[in-house]
Structures are given as structure tokens and as C-alpha cells.
């Protein structure tokens, strides 16, 4: 189990500086998760970095189709001094989605953002070299988006209605 900063404490701390741009803070399992408006996400990350959360564990994209804001970017931060982990989320609805880059905050974010671009088509404004990283450059489409289904070709017996779903 991880230690985390309590949700209401994090909410108070962030709201003091960023006001209404902090949409919600909740605790999911053992980590506090803050949802933040995309226009301040970079400022929040820089502020958090200055206030202890100096290690970028990882960041990745998620696609939630059929929701008002389907494109989500998740940042996992870790404060080693107090051993606290938090997670930040930011949602966008325009396609192609644009996020600010955090490559200048942590150079480690470079490839993580390229990965999110490669798989989800997220654009990171200000990224030094935004191109595909794991897939072929000539590839068309964004493979991890839900509109590209991966079919289980060998199995025809796995019909959802058989199992009451």
C-alpha cells in the first residue's frame, strides 16, 4: 500500500493556488487523484514539483469514448521526502487533443509524451520532437484509441449474451 496525501488536504492546497481550475480531488484506493483543467495542468505540475513532488513516475493517455471529454492524460508524481504518491488527470474534448508539454520540467517526459502521441494522437504543444516512437512512422491511426478494436479472432464462443453481460 502506498502513502498518499489525503484528498481534502490536497484539494485545499491546490485550490488555494489555482482556485476553480481544480475540478475535483478524490481518493482512489491508495492514491489521491486530482482532476485539473488542462489550461493550468502545467502550472500545477511545476508548482507541485517545487513543493516536493519532484519525481515523475510515469504519464500516459487514456481514451474514454462517448464521454463529454474523451481524451485523458494521467500524470503519476511521487514525493520521496515524505513518500507520498499522487495522480493528476486532465481531460480534453477537441480532436486532435492538445496538452502542454512537460518536457522542460522533466526531460523524462519526452518519450512518455511521444508514446501518448504515438498511441492516442495527443499533441503536446512545445514538445521538441513529437513523432511516433514505438510504431512505424508511416502508420495511420492511433492504435490505443477505442475505435480501433482488437478482435479475438479465434474465439466465436465468447458471445457476451451467453454470460449475461
Amino acid at each position: 500500500m502506498f502513502q498518499t496525501i489525503e484528498a481534502d488536504e490536497l484539494e485545499k492546497m491546490l485550490k488555494e493556488h489555482f482556485g476553480e481550475k481544480i475540478i475535483s480531488v478524490e481518493k482512489l484506493y491508495d492514491v489521491s487523484v486530482a482532476e485539473i483543467s488542462v489550461d493550468v495542468i502545467k502550472n500545477v505540475i511545476i508548482w507541485l514539483k517545487e513543493n516536493g513532488f519532484a519525481y515523475l513516475t510515469t504519464c500516459n493517455g487514456i481514451h474514454y469514448p462517448d464521454t463529454p471529454k474523451p481524451f485523458c492524460m494521467v500524470y503519476h508524481l511521487h514525493d520521496w521526502k515524505r513518500n507520498l504518491r499522487i495522480r493528476l488527470k486532465t481531460y480534453v474534448h477537441h480532436d486532435p487533443p492538445h496538452f502542454p508539454t512537460i518536457t522542460d520540467v522533466w526531460p523524462a517526459a519526452n518519450w512518455m509524451e511521444r508514446e501518448a502521441y504515438d498511441f492516442f494522437g495527443f499533441h503536446f504543444d512545445g514538445h521538441p520532437k513529437l513523432k511516433r516512437i514505438l510504431n512505424e512512422d508511416s502508420m495511420v491511426g492511433w492504435p490505443l484509441r477505442k475505435e480501433y478494436p482488437l478482435e479475438d479472432q479465434a474465439r466465436f464462443d465468447k458471445d457476451d449474451k451467453m454470460f449475461g453481460r
Binding site: 484506493y29 510515469t58 487514456i62 495522480r87
Partner: peptide
């Protein structure tokens, strides 16, 4: 739910973020 868990792998923090 969604959960992140990590172990000390051979090369460092090997984490799984599962939604």
C-alpha cells in the same frame, strides 16, 4: 476502479497502472 502498483524489478520501478 483504477490502481497503480509497482515492484522493484531487475531494472527499477516496474509499475502497472490498471484501469
Amino acid at each position: 476502479g483504477e490502481v497503480y502498483h509497482c515492484v522493484e524489478g531487475g531494472n527499477g520501478e516496474l509499475g502497472y497502472y490498471l484501469v
